[in-house]
């Protein structure tokens, strides 16, 4: 049975009067791959920085491995068991790839030398080249290597594939799936919804600091439906104000309903209104994401 490895309770972060993260409550299961979705400025990076002790929460609390994220001493213990890749992947320009690997290795007793060797070859990283001379893609690959080899139990990745070409994105996604299979927990933010859809077990969607969706991907695929309806006559707005309706779009005689569940009841309602056509379709994560944001 899996247990919660990362949790937050009403976590909030304000920058002056601006609320970047509002009352965020998350729970991440051990061994899962969790996608953390949101638009730019939604509060993803602020949340991640609070998890790693880079920022102090304005209110609320958070725990990783049952250690408090806002306690400096406990935060060090969290980071001993956690690997992180920052959104911009900036590393020390004055070090070579080999120097920064040696530097990072010195802080992690469970460093995975075998994986390091494999990834250096797989990514084709030039060990003697200075970080400042690397391409954006190679810098991202180096940052990923430095995170993956830490022997961590939790991987927190902020836009991990940004700057990579499709071939390398695929390699990284495969690695993440492999890590999860070994028991590592992966928590990653991304703008690339297809990546989340491809590998995640669980998805959080946040917008303007607030949690909009907290569901497993299987659950979403099973429960979310697009119901397209055609009627003999015009339909009034609010006709489908039923439980489970995320969004209702009505245009004359046609209606389109996005439902997060309760599909049968909605279909029954449409039948009761003498719908001439009823199509119940599966929904992609992209559609759920976009509709969730529109619905705000």
């Amino acid at each position: 049975m899996s247990s919660v490895i990362l949790e937050t309770e009403a976590l909030s972060k304000n920058y002056g009067r601006f609320e970047a993260v509002r009352q965020l409550s998350l729970a991440v299961q051990q061994g899962s791959i969790t996608g953390f979705l949101g638009q730019n400025g939604a509060g993803k990076s602020s949340t991640i920085k609070m998890l790693l002790g880079m920022m102090r929460p304005t209110s609320g609390s958070g725990r990783i491995f049952d250690l408090r994220i806002d306690h400096p001493g406990q935060s060090i213990n969290i980071r001993k068991r956690t690997a992180f890749v920052n959104e911009d992947k900036r590393l020390y320009d004055y070090m070579t790839v080999e120097q920064i690997i040696n530097f990072t290795r010195s802080f992690f007793p469970r460093w995975r030398n075998d994986l390091e060797k494999h990834l250096v070859e797989e990514f084709g990283l030039p060990l003697d080249r200075k970080i400042k001379k690397l391409s954006k893609g190679m810098r991202t690959q180096t940052a990923l290597l430095l995170a993956f080899c830490r022997g961590a139990e939790l991987l927190i990745l902020d836009e991990p594939t940004e700057g990579l070409d499709p071939v390398n994105i695929e390699k990284v996604l495969k690695l993440l799936v492999g890590f999860a299979a070994e028991g590592m927990t992966v928590f990653f933010s991304s703008h690339q919804i297809f990546e989340v859809e491809q590998i995640a077990d669980h998805v959080f969607i946040i917008d303007r600091g607030r949690l909009l969706v907290d569901a497993s991907l299987d659950q979403m695929k099973e429960e979310y439906r697009r119901i397209n309806l055609v009627f003999a006559g015009p339909v009034e707005k609010g006709t489908f104000a039923l439980e489970g309706v995320v969004r209702e779009q009505i245009d004359g005689r046609t209606a389109s309903v996005l439902a997060s569940g309760n599909t049968e009841r909605i279909v029954d309602c449409a039948r009761g209104l003498h719908a001439t056509s009823i199509d119940v379709l599966p929904v992609s994560l992209k559609e759920i994401f976009l509709e969730s944001l529109k619905g705000r």
Binding site: K49, L52, P72, N77, A83, A143
Partner: peptide
């Protein structure tokens, strides 16, 4: 300012 603080603070070292 250089953008490397995220990497440094992800290491298990106190400020």
């Amino acid at each position: 300012a250089q953008g490397t603080v995220g990497f440094t603070l992800s290491l298990p070292i106190g400020r």
